[in-house]
């Protein structure tokens, strides 16, 4: 509980300081992918399901909301419709995927992702195909840097609070039961497949919400937002931050976006550096950044406790 309190205070500070540290588009991207990573963690870290198809929901929802804005619908209709769209798609795809476990689940979600990519690619008239969906305009009321940031921050906070409610509800506990011991969860009366589908849907719906916001940043949807490489990035951001805690993935997002922004300016072949970082993290820092910090914190605490203890002994001797 205490740990969560500190993380939330850190989060609020970040929301106030962030806009001064990073360019406008970058901080908006961080918050939007923050929603993606935290919700993906519900499925990955809490329920123990690895989906390699989350870009599907992100991209599809971005297209839906982009197309609605182009069609003249208001933003406050476009976001819910796009989010609901990803919810429906996630139920449909999830129904087939959650029947399978482990590698087969990864294969299926991956293949579905690429199915949607090719639909977007071929359906040039609607999605813009390879050129992406362009010319989406932000509504006037969020067109300044400040209002747009406030808007994304509010949406981000809304999503984080909703997801936190889920994690601390009985549903969150059921997800952990499935991760820990699916057959025992079944034996005490939980329909594991049903709850896996719920977990998959929650992750995908919130990823969809993030996708529907993404279109506002650059006023377009590039087709690589639905490519399977994006799914890989999403998994990396989540794991990089650490799946052991609720807000851990956010650290991964900030780190990933900051690094890729920095390297992409320096060198066109920056994905090479990212690849090397991925590999090093996997081989040597498997718990992610948040666990690294936690361990350092623990070490610090045990050292300070030790010195306190020594101090006590000294004091006693003096007395």
């Amino acid at each position: 509980m205490m740990k969560n309190k500190y993380s939330f205070i850190a989060l609020i500070i970040f929301l106030f300081v962030g806009p001064f540290l990073f360019p406008n588009a970058t901080i908006a991207e961080m918050l939007i992918f923050g929603i993606v990573a935290i919700s993906t963690n519900i499925m990955l870290g809490y329920t123990g399901m690895l989906s390699f198809g989350q870009a599907l929901f992100f991209g599809t929802s971005a297209y839906i909301s982009g197309l609605m804005l182009l069609g003249g619908f208001p933003l406050f209709l476009a976001i819910p419709v796009a989010t609901f769209g990803s919810f429906i798609i996630s139920l449909f795809i999830g129904y087939f995927c959650v029947k399978r476990e482990g590698l087969y689940f990864i294969c299926l979600t991956f293949a579905f992702n690429q199915m949607f990519y090719f639909i977007a690619y071929v359906w040039h008239d609607v999605t813009g195909g390879e050129d992406g969906l362009v010319g989406v305009e932000r509504p006037a009321y969020i067109d300044t840097q400040l209002t747009f940031y406030i808007f994304t921050a509010i949406m981000f906070l809304f999503a984080v609070i909703a997801l936190y409610k889920i994690v601390t509800s009985p549903l969150g506990l059921i997800f952990k039961l499935i991760r820990e011991n699916a057959s025992r969860a079944e034996a005490i009366g939980y329909n594991v497949r049903f709850y896996k589908l719920i977990s998959f849907s929650i992750a995908s719906t919130f990823t969809g919400l993030a996708g529907s916001l993404y279109v506002l940043i650059h006023s377009m949807v590039p087709i690589d937002q639905i490519h399977w490489l994006k799914s890989g990035d999403i998994i990396f951001m989540t794991l990089f931050g650490g799946v052991g805690s609720f807000l851990g993935p956010l650290i991964g997002v900030v780190g990933y976006i900051w690094l890729s922004d920095t390297f992409s300016i320096i060198w066109a072949r920056w994905p090479l550096i990212m690849g090397v970082i991925f590999a090093i993290v996997v081989l040597y820092f498997r718990g992610g950044v948040s666990e690294l910090l936690e361990n350092l914190f623990k070490k610090y605490k045990s050292i300070s406790k030790k010195t306190e203890h020594e101090q006590n002994i000294k004091n006693r001797k003096l007395n």
Partner: peptide, 24 residues
């Protein structure tokens, strides 16, 4: 019947090997 339905009807089972949720 699928095993998850049984507890809801009033049948519960205990396993031969220890079968708990270790990290909880």
């Amino acid at each position: 019947f699928e095993s998850y339905k049984l507890p809801h009807m009033g049948i519960a089972k205990c396993f031969q090997i220890t079968n708990v949720f270790p990290k909880l």
